[in-house]
Design a protein around this nucleic acid. Structure first.
Lengths: 119, 119
DNA sequence: CAGGATCCGACCTGATACTG
DNA sequence: CAGTATCAGGTCGGATCCTG
């Protein structure tokens, strides 16, 4: 196992188009139901939400508690272990904020990615 | 622009299969030539290396200096601005290291992703 | 030496429909 | 309500060949 695998492992937790957003929601609001997450993140669809939640659960970042009721109810929250991520998330967030400004200074308030810069 | 965009912007810099590795190399070794990076990261190919370097350059994380010589020579290094990332990278690395162990405790020394857990 | 261009396969994302 | 199944589209990674 090479050293930078650690790195990629760490990133694997965060990448996935929606994981940061989900984590943010869970960190801000504490425990949330599936439908609450859906409402909070309007652009996501069930499949993606369920999928990313499963991965986060597998990685022991979020806790999933299902109640066997007639109207099903499942609650998600950040696990104790997952809380250790908030430091990293915070660092990322702070840097990201500064970075957005930095990019604007460099390129004006345009797109944020290289996109097709090949004419 | 939603709040979590910052987040994604920050992550966009780091994601891409090879960016963390490249950054790590550049941080450890200072200035490096294209071919040195290739040697240091044997599994990457030219296209990927060039591509990821271009993106990092666009984001002002790495500096690219080309010398107009007969045998071309291009040197890459972390920009002053990019150095601000090392904090984040370090945090990520530390957490990632701990996480690998955590996963091993949970699942034994097996694969690190959920993969197909649907039987 | 340092890339650019092209093409292809794998994976990721998403819309829709169906289930307990 | 909380998902799963299926299918379609797009993006990403990589091999190979070509250029200055």
């Amino acid at each position: 196992m090479k050293e930078y695998c650690k790195f990629e492992s760490a990133l694997d937790i965060l990448i996935g188009k929606w994981k940061p957003v989900i984590l943010l929601q869970l960190i801000s609001n504490g425990t949330m139901r599936f439908s609450e997450l859906q409402k909070a993140i309007p652009d996501i669809n069930k499949k993606m939400l369920a999928q990313q939640l499963r991965e986060l659960e597998y990685n022991d970042i979020v806790l999933r508690v299902a109640y066997n009721q007639v109207p099903p109810k499942v609650e998600y929250s950040i696990s104790d272990y997952g809380k250790g991520l908030s430091t990293v998330l915070q660092a990322l967030n702070d840097w990201g904020e500064a970075h957005v400004e930095h990019m604007n200074e460099l390129y004006g308030e345009e797109r944020s990615g290289p996109g097709e810069l090949d004419s």
